[in-house]
Computed example of a mutant assay.
Amino acid sequence: MSDEKNFKDLPAGKSISYQHLLFYLEQGREIEFVYKEKEYFISHSLEGRTVWNGQKRISEHFRDNDVSLLESTKIEGRTLADLLKQNEIKITAIF
């Protein structure tokens, strides 16, 4: 990510752009977000990144490919990338 200076804030409670979320993922951050009043979590472990809804894993593990995670993981038939681009995800925490 070349535009690091534009992503200094931690936008809890707000929508963020696809590029903004990708920046945080590339930093190794973990993200909590809400979509349609349901909480989700993007974890980062030795197995790779995955998306959770509570205790239920809703994506495969992705190692070193955050774009694939966003482009492949679907919630209610829509990719995370699409939901981000349409500003339908609200960030609740960034770790």
Rank of each mutant, 00 (worst) to 15 (best):
K8H: 12
Y40P: 02
E39K: 08
Q27R: 07
E88W: 03
F41D: 09
Q19P: 00
F23A: 05
G48K: 05
I75N: 03
M1A: 04
I91W: 04
A93G: 14
N65F: 06
M1W: 00
V51N: 06
S72W: 13
K8Q: 13
S2M: 10
I75Q: 03
Y35V: 08
K36R: 10
R78H: 14
L83A: 04
L84F: 07
K90T: 08
R57M: 11
I89P: 09
I89R: 06
F33V: 04
Y35W: 14
E4F: 15
I58C: 02
F62A: 01
G13S: 09
Q19K: 09
Q86N: 02
F62G: 01
I42W: 03
E76Y: 11
R57D: 07
K74Q: 09
L69Q: 11
F62M: 02
L22W: 01
S45A: 00
K36P: 01
V51C: 13
V34A: 09
I89D: 08
S43R: 11
F33L: 03
I42Y: 04
S72N: 14
W52A: 01
T79V: 07
E88V: 03
K5F: 11
L70V: 07
I91R: 08
P11L: 12
E4N: 13
F95W: 15
G77V: 01
L84G: 03
T92Y: 02
Q19M: 06
A93Y: 14
M1P: 00
W52Y: 10
D9K: 12
Q19S: 07
G13C: 03
K8F: 14
V67F: 14
